[in-house]
């Protein structure tokens, strides 16, 4: 019905994920680099056998070391919000694909010579970093959607506020109740843990939850008490059930958040260990040259 006239066709923020960034630009680059490395490795007939000390070995080693330094620099890039045309998405994309290309480049650099030494240690640490990174890619690609669905427009602060709100209601409604019901509800209010340590977070549930226990006990008690107490307990149970649902959501939220973060607790420290080993590797190589 209409023809766009006089409209701005601004360069739109291209809507594609970091994995597809710029039409897989960095995937292509990484593949090309890897192919070039493989080609170089087999073209050059290194004597007495392929190893890190040959010309191709040094080349691959230098490229690898520089790549590692550059990949580490993502941590700074992410936090230093300087002016300029850079996009962190592009950096992430390059970080992922060029990081993966290290598998080829560094492995060829070793010439498949492994041993119980600092050189192999550096290699093993690097592979560990890459493997932890693979977890990262997997979670980044799969978790956000679930996390969005679970939180259903409420923010973390909202969730905590709603839980606090439910607790206030519980305290109010429990006050006129006789023992032992009051203390059950009291426990549900004071002893409920939203979540706990790493493993509790990752599981998305809390064993022995005070709220769940209180709910079970009250529900069981409803059929055994006389009116009007049963109705009062019914009300308490419905609020406890609501708290339970909210807790489930909050715990799942914590689980997803942890999934998106915890791999970094391997990835980053291992990177620093790698840098140290790499330094030792380079110094020792030149020292014993």
């Amino acid at each position: 019905m209409a023809r766009p006239v006089g409209k701005a066709h601004r360069q739109d923020a291209r809507h594609e994920s970091f994995l597809r960034h710029a039409g897989f630009r960095y995937l292509k680059l990484a593949v090309m680099m890897s192919l070039a490395a493989i080609l170089g490795y087999f073209m050059v007939d290194a004597e007495p056998r392929p190893n890190g000390g040959s010309l191709i070995g040094y080349t691959l080693g230098t490229i690898g070391a520089l790549l590692i330094l550059w990949l580490t620099f993502l941590g700074v890039r992410k936090r230093a919000i300087t002016a300029g045309r850079w996009k962190l998405k592009g950096w992430t994309s390059a970080h992922v694909y060029l990081g993966l290309s290290l598998i080829v480049i560094a492995t060829l650099h070793t010439g498949f010579q492994f041993g119980w030494n600092v050189h192999t240690l550096a290699y093993v640490l690097m592979m560990a970093v890459i493997i932890s990174g693979l977890f990262g890619i997997f979670y980044y690609a799969s978790v956000p959607q679930q996390m969005s669905r679970n939180r259903a427009e409420s923010s973390e602060v909202d969730m905590l506020e709603e839980l606090a709100d439910i607790d206030r209601q519980l305290e109010e409604i429990a006050q006129p109740l006789p023992q032992p019901y009051v203390s059950w509800v009291q426990k549900a209010v004071t002893k409920t843990k939203i979540t706990g340590g790493l493993f509790t977070r990752l599981s998305g549930r809390v064993g022995n939850c005070a709220t769940a226990k209180a709910l079970d006990k009250i529900r069981a008690a409803i059929s055994e008490v006389e009116p009007p107490l049963d109705e009062q307990l019914e009300n308490v149970a419905s609020i406890l059930a609501r708290k339970n649902v909210m807790l489930e959501r909050a715990r799942l939220h914590a689980k997803y958040k942890t999934l998106l973060e915890f791999w970094l607790y391997f990835h980053v420290p291992l990177t620093f260990a790698l840098l140290a080993a790499l330094l030792a590797h380079i110094i020792s190589v030149f020292f014993y040259w």
């Binding site: 766009p4 923020a13 809507h15 970091f18 960034h21 962190l88």
Partner: peptide, 26 residues
């Protein structure tokens, strides 16, 4: 937008809202 590591944050003008709903694959 520049600081988004995954490409989730985008800025759009009214003419392109609907393209937003049609991201190509993942």
């Amino acid at each position: 937008v520049r600081a988004c590591p995954t490409g989730a944050a985008i800025r759009v003008s009214p003419e392109s809202y609907l393209n937003v709903t049609q991201r190509e694959g993942n």
